[in-house]
Structure formats: C-alpha cells, structure tokens
Amino acid sequence: MRRHCAALIASWVLGSCATPSQDLIVLLPDKEGKVGTVVVQGQKGKAVLNTAYAAARTTPEGGMQRGIASQSEVKEVFGSALAAQPSRPISFILYFESGNDEFTEESKQEVRRLLAEMARREAPDITVIGHTDLVGPDPSNDALSLQRAERVKSILAGMGIPAERILTAGRGRREPLIPAVEGVSEPRNRRVEINVR
C-alpha cells in the first residue's frame, strides 16, 4: 500500500498520470497566403495540419480531434498573443563602390531608410549579413563576407546605433541574390544585408 502511494505521487510529478492539458493548435496562412505544415503528436494521436485554419484539439483522454478554427475563435482565443507579435523582420541591401569603402549613392539612401525603420520600431536589433558572389570556395567566402559585415557594423555604430544591438554574420556564397554561374564574378551578389527585427 505504501509503495503504491509513492508510485502515485511520482507519477503525478512526472505528469504521466495527470490530466493532460487540453491543447488547441491552429495553422495560419502567412502574409502571402501560403501555409506550411505542423505535425502535432499527442499522447495517443497525431494530426498533420497543412491547410489554412486547420486545427487540432487534444481531448482529456489524450486523443486528437481534427477540425477547422473559425476566424472569430482565433480572434477570441489568440487575439492578445497575435497583437503582441513583433513587427516583421525587414532587410536592406547595401553595396560598396568598387575598389573603396564608400557606399554607392543608392545605398546611402538605403541607409537612411534603414535608420527610419529602426526609429519606427520599439526595440530594434539588427544583423549585418555579408554575402559574396560564386567565385571561390566556401571558407574564403565565409571569411570575406564576415569581414565586410564587420566593416558595415563599425560604420553603423559610428552613426549612433548601439553596438550591442548589432550582430554580424558571414553567409558566404550560400544565398546569391540573383542566379549566377559558378566562378563568374557578379557584383550584385557581393552585398551586405541589414536584417532589422
């Protein structure tokens, strides 16, 4: 009897015998109307959500019910969480004049747009991401792109953006902006992206 009691307490602590939480999961379309996939694994059932407003509800017995959530239910249950969503991240692309450290004329305007966007946000953090073209191997491009990002970070810090809010990243040649041929120099891919979030 005593042993049984102890086991019961332990099972409550572990949660395996406790009443499971009742969950509601709803898939939303993104801003472009596209939907991804969420796989919900419950204690006894599983649901794959891959259409807009597809919903899964867990039952007190640990089962899983599929359904559709109405927009009014979404608003009622999740209105506060949705209202607290941070602003969507946004990227600005900067180019240097070839052969020197100066931004191109167009990029100087882009920097002004960046500063305006940062002023609009409550607590902006940024990542300065260097990108290269498809000339040369990964390691040297990774180093080069990070070097460019660091240079832009110091320029932005010099404009008054707090350094502790600026991260740097070297993405190397992994994310060409426009399609390019291996080994061919493409200035439009040699860029620095400022991601604001």
């Binding site: 999961i25 898939l27 996939t37 969420v38 796989v39 919900v40 694994q41 204690q43 999740f78 969480a81």
Partner: peptide, 18 residues
C-alpha cells in the same frame, strides 16, 4: 504538457489549458 509540434516553415497558434 501533452503534445509535441514539429514545425515545417509556417505560422501557427497554440493554446495549452489546464
């Protein structure tokens, strides 16, 4: 406490109630 969600690039909502 009762489910695990695997995410493949998407937007979604979760409520967990006692």
């Amino acid at each position: 406490p009762s489910s695990i969600l695997g995410v493949r690039g998407t937007e979604f909502l979760v409520r967990s109630s006692d």
